[in-house]
Amino acid sequence: MSEISMTVNGRKVQGTVEDRTLLVHFLRENLGLTGTHVGCDTSQCGACLVHVDGKAMKSCTLLAVQVSGSEIMTIEGLANGADLHPVQAAFREHHGLQCGFCTPGMIMSAIDMINRHPEGLDEATVRAELEGNICRCTGYHNIVKAVLAASKEMAKSTKGKGRAKAA
């Protein structure tokens, strides 16, 4: 057992976990943050994607104890009250979801992708970058549309307000 502490969605949290506890289970079971999903459990589908110190990582392939001391952002940490994050808003606007199971991972992946491409995104890049996120409803067309729209929207607001990276 280990004592761990980390910042999750801006909130300091701690817990005592078995060393084998995966980050996704710590988030879901200890913290009740069930927006992060376990899909394939084999590191392929990306439903468990969260940001660790600002980078997208698969929380089903990380031990919670490995990231003790880190800053974690999950899907629950994106919206500002009733105001959706631009990527969440774009997924709603463009219907970038069907059953919704992969959506939290898709959105966390999209934000990471947009942050890594300040020069902007094109369709081919978005499709290539979504390599690690699987939508078994196969709703990729609208997901790609949503990511492209969000990328444009976030570029506008970055220019307008000179604000730092979202999430």
């Binding site: 980078k55 997208a56 698969k58 990471d112 992708m113 970058e129 390599e131 690690g132």
Partner: peptide, 9 residues
């Protein structure tokens, strides 16, 4: 190698 999240790690 892998995908973006795997490459981060």
């Amino acid at each position: 190698i892998g995908d973006p999240a795997v490459r981060h790690r």
